[in-house]
C-alpha cells in the first residue's frame, strides 16, 4: 500500500494517478486502458473497491456498470480484500501430476483456512488457481506475483515462513 499522500480528486497515489493519466492516451480508444487500470488499481488498493470502480469509470468515461461487467469476467480481479500475501496454488494437470493437490492441502492445513479463505490476521489468503505457466517446474504457486516452483510440502513451509517473517517486520508486498 502506498504511503504517499493522495492528490485531491483521486484515491490513487500520485505515481499511479500519473500512470493512469498517461495510460488512457496510449490507445486509439480510452477504454483499452480499462483492464490494466483495474489490475494496477487492485495492486495498490488491495481489491477493486467501489471507489476504484467509480474513479476508473470516470477516468475512462464509461458507466460503473460497464466497469463491473468487465471486473466480473477476469479471475485476477477481486471485489473483496485478500490477505497481504495471496497464496495461489496451481493444481492444473502438470502440477497435479507432481503433487499440486498435496501442496494445496498442505497450505490449507498449515494456514488453517479453506480455498478462498483469509487468515484472521489478514496476512495470508489462499486460492486454488488454474495454470500459471510454470508447468515444467511444477508443482508451483504464486504468492502475489512471485513464482515459487518445484515445491515440496517442506519448501512450501519455508515459503510461508519467509512471508510470515516479512509481514512481522512490516515488510511490503
Amino acid at each position: 500500500m502506498s504511503t504517499q499522500p493522495a492528490q485531491p480528486g483521486t484515491i490513487f497515489s500520485p505515481t499511479l494517478a500519473a500512470r493512469f493519466d498517461r495510460l488512457v492516451t496510449l490507445y486509439p480508444v480510452k477504454r483499452s486502458a480499462l483492464v490494466p487500470m483495474l489490475l494496477y488499481a487492485q495492486d495498490e488498493i488491495g481489491y477493486v473497491s467501489d471507489a476504484v470502480i467509480a474513479e476508473v469509470a470516470a477516468r475512462i468515461g464509461i458507466t460503473e456498470l460497464d466497469v463491473r461487467n468487465v471486473v466480473s469476467y477476469y479471475s485476477l480481479l477481486r471485489t473483496k480484500p485478500a490477505g497481504k500475501y495471496h497464496v495461489q496454488v496451481c493444481t492444473n494437470i502438470s502440477c497435479m501430476l507432481r503433487g499440486g493437490n498435496e501442496i494445496l492441502d498442505h497450505c490449507k492445513k498449515k494456514l488453517g483456512i479453506p480455498n478462498k479463505g483469509v487468515t484472521p490476521d489478514g496476512v495470508f489468503s489462499l486460492e486454488e488457481v488454474e495454470c500459471i505457466g510454470a508447468c515444467s517446474w511444477g508443482p508451483a504457486a504464486q504468492v502475489n506475483y512471485a513464482f515459487h516452483e518445484n515445491l515440496t510440502p517442506e519448501s512450501m513451509d519455508q515459503v510461508l515462513a519467509d512471508y510470515r517473517a516479512k509481514a512481522q517486520n512490516g515488510g511490503g508486498k
Binding site: L26, V29, S32, V35, L38, S75
Partner: peptide, 25 residues
C-alpha cells in the same frame, strides 16, 4: 504498447483477445 490481461484463458483466443484489448469482457 505493452498490455496486461487479468486472468482469463479465453482471452488467448484471437477474437476474445481483441475484445479484451478494447476493454471488454
Amino acid at each position: 504498447v505493452v498490455q496486461t490481461g487479468a486472468g482469463a484463458y479465453e482471452v488467448g483466443e484471437e477474437s476474445a483477445l481483441m475484445e479484451s484489448l478494447e476493454g471488454k469482457r
